[in-house]
Design a protein around this nucleic acid. Structure first.
Length: 549
RNA sequence: GCGCCGAUGGUCUAGUGGUAUGACUUGGGCUUCCCAAGCCCAAAGUCCGGGUUCAAUUCCCGGUCGGCGCACCA
């Protein structure tokens, strides 16, 4: 592992990214994307968007600021208030609530259990960025993930999707975590970019995915929770129960497809299952797509989790709104249904103010408890004895047209900054060409920030320059990102473009003036092809168009 | 947050108690008929605050930022 990869220097010099707020001494955990970085990020986002639009999912954008209730429901707020203290002597950090349970004496004495040093004073551990909303200062937070907005609006999305499962929604956006110590450049930021898809599925329909056939032969490199590595097709992974169900396997295969499409090399990609101790308590299963970087080793870039019904249920409890959706049966069914009728008047006269509670308790009792000679329920803190004659059990035929279920959520969650870093680092290469060094970012042509550059062979030749500018303008008008460069020697200009990954460089030479052709030099082979100038915009467009999913 | 190390033009770097070296890059010009050639000119720097001192980029203290280790990463 290298300390810092040369790509970071190149990225800084060539306008991919800069430490943010340099003018004021930088702020850790924040980065600027320069023009090429912003363009590359945009291409990653576009690819994500194309993939999930092709799945038929709905793109939304929710606010970044949310009131506290959202995070009480999600569970984030609880962690925000975690009290922390450290031992200055040995550097260990403790969560006081944990320490109180495990070692109450040490916690009360403020002593470090490891080295007996004195713990620092307790302070809340801020993971979320806090803020206040409006003049009333309603407590709020900047979201630590984009997903909550989708859970909260699930009912509206479900209606909009014509009340059908599975339902997919996705969102790209900025999230915030108040990291204690941001490190490793783009890998752990305080403000970062995510792309998340939330796929709501019927819990009974996860086993089979309607489009599984499209991915069943896709090989996946899997490292399971016991650290066993095996490469198998997604079909094998499901049949061996390595992966929980087809839906999870399907989405992992799609994630892999997208990452390869972006330019992550296959041999540096794997999926690793969360171990029991790192699996969030609500997740049924979670696999991270990891990319093997040169500078930092294996880095998580996408998490694919089966979150069960946790999110919808939590928001339902917090808000008081039911979470379930009604799923009609193909055919209405008739069922024998037992209903309990309670003589409310009689009970009211018998129990007075405790009657309402007693009646609720009665309706909740299982049928067998309603049979005996006397029936007992708790109400108003006392045991009340009810005469069975006040209770009638009726058996009726009832038509049941469907059932209410709470959908489960399958969530692929992408860290865009990490993907961007991986793309730069892993596609970067340095080589020798005729004794001269050449640095190239070998991004796939459809990912390159700049698609083409136009040069006059001689910078100070007015005829060549005019032609080159004209072609440059035409390329831009065709919607391509194109650069113009007439400075210095031609070789230097090629090198400059190599460093930002421009796949095609077009040179206008003397022959261009005679027959209207120009040379197109391809980045990786450095080979040139002479092409009529009028065909060049189409040539570039065709070769830099992203392949469909 | 803790510990160790560091911070000099855009980048990399030399050096110094008396405001600073070189290279690359960049801009302008000459040259040049396809891969960082050459020549001329120009622009650009001591992280921030305090202290010691006649004088601090240099020494001391604090901070910020960065690298690494520990911790944290719900």
């Amino acid at each position: 592992m290298e300390k810092t990869h040369p790509i970071l220097e190149l990225a800084k010099n060539r306008g991919f990214l800069w430490p943010a707020y340099e003018l004021y001494g930088q702020v850790a955990g924040f980065y600027d994307y320069g023009p090429h970085g912003a363009a590359l990020k945009r291409r990653i986002e576009d690819a994500f968007r194309r993939l999930y639009l092709a799945e038929g999912y709905l793109e939304v954008e929710n606010p970044i600021v949310a009131p506290e209730e959202v995070f009480i429901a999600s569970g984030h707020a609880g962690h925000f208030t975690d009290p922390m203290a450290e031992c200055p002597k040995c550097g260990t950090a403790y969560r006081l609530d944990h320490l109180l349970k495990e070692n109450p004496e040490a916690a009360r004495a403020q002593k470090c259990p490891q080295c007996k040093g004195s713990l620092t004073e307790t302070r809340p551990f801020n993971l979320m960025m806090a803020t206040h909303i409006g003049p009333s200062k309603r407590p709020g937070y900047l979201r630590p993930e984009t997903a909550q907005g989708i859970y909260i609006t699930f009912k509206r999305l479900y209606r909009l999707g014509r009340e059908k499962l599975p339902l997919g929604a996705f969102q790209l956006g900025t999230s915030f975590r108040n990291e204690i110590s941001p490190r490793q450049g783009l890998l752990r930021l305080r403000e970062f970019h995510m792309a998340e898809a939330e796929v709501f599925v019927h819990p009974d329909e996860k086993e089979e995915h309607p489009r599984f056939a499209e991915v069943e032969g896709v090989p996946l490199r899997l490292v399971d929770a016991q650290d066993r590595e095996k490469t198998m097709t997604s079909a094998e992974a499901v049949s061996t129960r390595t992966l929980l169900h087809q839906t999870l396997a399907y989405h992992m295969a799609r994630v892999q497809q997208l990452l390869l499409h972006l330019g992550i090399p296959q041999e540096r990609l794997r999926f690793r299952q969360h171990r029991k101790d790192e699996l969030a308590h609500y997740a049924l299963d979670c696999w991270d797509a990891e990319v093997q970087t040169k500078a930092y080793g294996w880095v998580e870039v996408v998490g694919i989790a089966d979150r069960g019904d946790y999110d919808l249920t939590r928001h339902s409890k917090q808000s008081g709104e039911p979470a379930g959706v009604f799923i009609p049966y193909p055919e209405p069914q008739t069922r024998k249904v037992r209903t309990i009728r309670v003589d409310k008047k009689a009970i009211g006269q018998q129990l007075g103010s405790r009657a309402a509670e007693a009646i609720r308790a009665l309706s909740a009792l299982p049928p067998e408890k309603l049979r005996g000679p006397t029936i007992q329920v708790q109400a108003g803190g006392q045991t009340c004895t009810i005469d069975p004659k006040h209770i009638t059990i009726e058996e009726k035929e009832q038509k049941v047209t469907g059932e209410t279920i709470t959908p489960h959520v399958i969530e692929p969650s992408y860290g865009l900054d990490r993907i961007l870093y991986s793309l730069l680092e892993l596609n970067h290469r340095e080589e020798q060409v005729e004794e001269e060094p050449r640095a190239v970012i070998g991004l796939p042509p459809h990912m390159a920030p700049v698609q083409a550059a136009v040069f006059p062979l001689l910078g100070n030749h007015p005829g060549l320059a005019a032609r080159a500018r004209e072609l440059h303008r035409t390329l831009r008008q065709a919607g391509l990102r194109a650069e113009y460069d007439d400075s210095g020697a031609i070789g230097r200009r090629y090198r400059r473009q190599d460093e930002i990954g421009t796949p095609y460089c077009i040179t206008i030479d003397h022959q261009s003036l005679e027959d209207g052709t120009a040379t197109i030099r391809e980045r990786d082979s450095m080979k040139q092809e002479r092409t009529p100038t009028r065909e060049i915009p189409g040539y570039i467009q065709q070769r830099t168009a992203p392949p469909p999913f």
